[in-house]
């Protein structure tokens, strides 16, 4: 005769088990600005910065508005003081130009030659910006965030 295996006490023997102490695993939304800044960048955001090389030194109003809109759309929950101070990217204008920067406050694109120092703490991002694995590098007060072509973000305390 087949014998029943020890049944678990869930039916009438539920008192065997203590109440579940930590099954509070309900999913909940979080609004963490730091996590947002570290998250993958959207395609729209990536494309907003793609044409900086062609734009000359001063962006026109349309380009400025597009970049501002891309930044706001990308980081809706991030306060203005925590947004990137600027962007450094590889320059495709050719030798002797090496990198260009976008100052997010002034909306000015500057192209820099080899050996020419970058202003406003952007020099920290130069080596990474030159590396082909990154499309551009966002510069913050205490960190830099290197962004790959697929939007992956890598944060470094530099």
């Amino acid at each position: 005769m087949a014998r029943s295996i020890l049944s678990h006490p869930g039916g009438n023997g539920g008192s065997f088990l203590p109440a579940t102490a930590a099954n509070a695993t309900a999913a909940f939304a979080f609004a963490n600005p730091k996590a947002r800044l570290a998250a993958r960048r959207s395609a729209a955001y990536m494309s907003a910065f793609a044409q900086l090389d062609a734009g000359g030194h001063l962006l026109d109003d349309k380009a400025k508005a597009a970049i501002r809109a891309a930044i706001r759309a990308e980081f809706p929950e991030v306060s203005a003081v925590d947004l990137p101070l600027g962007i450094v990217a590889r320059c495709h204008l050719g030798h002797p130009y090496e990198v260009h920067t976008l100052d997010c406050a002034l909306d000015i694109v500057e192209h820099y030659k080899i050996g020419q120092a970058l202003p406003g703490g952007m020099e920290r991002a130069r080596t990474l910006a030159r590396h082909p694995s990154y499309v551009f590098v966002e510069v913050y007060l205490r960190q830099v965030r290197a962004v790959s072509a697929d939007g992956t973000v890598t944060t470094l305390d530099l």
Binding site: I5, S7, H8, G10, L17, P18, T20, A22, N23, T25
Partner: peptide
């Protein structure tokens, strides 16, 4: 006996604090 095994497991998991 997968039925009882799964129920035992369910209790086991319920007791766990992921932290």
């Amino acid at each position: 006996r997968h039925g009882p095994a799964a129920r035992w497991l369910d209790h086991y998991f319920g007791l766990q604090d992921p932290t």
